[in-house]
Amino acid sequence: MSQLLNSLLTEQRRGNLTLAVLSQLRTPQYGYSLVKRLEGSGITIEQSTLYPLLRRLEKKDLVTSSWDTSESRPRKYYVLSDYGEDIFQTLKEEWKKATNELFQLLEEENNEMD
């Protein structure tokens, strides 16, 4: 039971995580600062998920990366590209629409049960 629930939850979260990460990358972020920001909004993401995700986003040209070596230790910064910004806006609108629809659907079901 709990294993099934876990895999369903993972599936449900996967798409949302991408959106969450994209939303935080309008200003340059390095890995750990991104984790902190997401945690601040109550979103936990496993680091073993986040870093590979960032690489995939970079490979698809949604984000660009650069090493900052001016500080005491080098950090890899990621930031949304123009293309990534476009994609992010579209995804955001779609997500709002979809959650709205889903919300109403679940509300109706609630009312029927009453």
Binding site: Y30, G31, Y32, Q47, Y51, R73, P74, R75, K76
Partner: peptide, 10 residues
């Protein structure tokens, strides 16, 4: 290098 820098951040 990225993982190493992350560990140090943490």
């Amino acid at each position: 290098l990225e993982i190493q820098s992350t560990i140090q951040d943490m």
